[in-house]
Design a binder for these strands. Sequence first.
DNA 1: CTCCATTTATAACAGGGTTATGAGATACTG
DNA 2: CAGTATCTCATAACCCTGTTATAAATGGAG
Lengths: 235, 235
Amino acid sequence: MSPKPRANDVKERLVEAAIRLLAEGGPEALQARKLAAEVGVSTMAVYTHFGGMAALVDEVARTGFRKLSAWLAEVAETDDPVADIFGLARTYRQAVAEQPQLFAVTFGQSAPGGKRATLSDLTTEEGREAAQEGLEAFEHIVRATERAIEAGRFRPADKYQAAAQLWSALHGFVTLEASGHFGAGEQGIDHILIPLGITLAVGLGDTVERAEHSTEAAKAVWRARTGNAGQGGND
Amino acid sequence: MSPKPRANDVKERLVEAAIRLLAEGGPEALQARKLAAEVGVSTMAVYTHFGGMAALVDEVARTGFRKLSAWLAEVAETDDPVADIFGLARTYRQAVAEQPQLFAVTFGQSAPGGKRATLSDLTTEEGREAAQEGLEAFEHIVRATERAIEAGRFRPADKYQAAAQLWSALHGFVTLEASGHFGAGEQGIDHILIPLGITLAVGLGDTVERAEHSTEAAKAVWRARTGNAGQGGND
DNA sequence: CTCCATTTATAACAGGGTTATGAGATACTG
DNA sequence: CAGTATCTCATAACCCTGTTATAAATGGAG
């Protein structure tokens, strides 16, 4: 097996193997020796390509952001921007639910004190320029928020500020759910995420009726997407 | 120094030292040998008292929850339950801002030595029993939410469900802020946390005017508390 | 005092990340 | 084409950290 790894995709394969090990065995399974064995090379590959495990983990974290952005980008824009926001939320939650270990690294690695350039303030112009991958995922929420404001569903407001509110709530729910605080399975979606979304939409200016209608629309779109061809694959 | 550790508070001192090392050097500094040296004992103490580093980290996580609960318990109940919720939010945020490393462990984002602390489900009866400390912090939000519903500020709703929404949003904001996404200092509070709180309050049934008034009331209380005698001490 | 349980220090072991070194491959240069 | 420089990778060692085996010290029970 593994006849001979072709020249330069060893780096790529290391990251892929790292994500696989992470998904299967959690953070403890992410070890240089296991990684090397998985790819069929020696541990030196980690050092020639990344400089060390820390940098590799960093790359894994960035890959998580990229995957998240890619998934969010697949959410189609409809004429109901609030429903689109719910669609983004479901997608965000689904990504984390499917690969909790990966996103635990992704969100954990962005902590300050780490080596990596931290994503800076997303509510200022300069900050947005400094933050690459993290911002990209955020931008999808911003765009949908902007459309909701333009459509009169949300009150006029700073789109970044409103989107940051939505992102906070969504991220908090997803994080707490991944930590096991909201039970297993899908119950957290119905019991908390959807009511939370309605609360936020209404608080931002939508009516209860329209917000509820949008959750139903989003649920229908979601069923069509995941019913036909699940989006849970590897990009 | 350290004349001779008295019998059974070695356990206590180990946890204290662990929190100190964590605060000063991050997760990587939380090591059995450093810990033992800090307390003035051998590494064996970790094993006789905890069974291993994993259990010690777990105890550190639980201590974080206990401190958080203690801080939240200090927030007085006024006749404005929505203002009280804002007070709880500021306190929650302040705790994490002051001891980000500790709460990164508490919430499971940081994994010293690969050993993550695990928490339990708060939306089920059994889960709530298993998670004493986690629940205690959550209960403060539940209680304030209940009062807001009873006072007619929030629409009638399941108090746990409504509180879970508030907790999600608050936790998400705090987490993202601690990761550096919302800039440094207090700007995240004014730009995002307070607007988020107003959005949620309004979405749950409050009026914009009363919600805004409550944020001001909470800010005044906060200034009085932190202006007089900061609450940043150890429990 | 003697016995027993608990706690602790010492020292070794095990398993990780990392590094030194040299061999092989690759590409550029004359 | 020959030679050389560079990049990549395997081997083997090194260091650090969690852990455990063992025995000494401690302290209460009888």
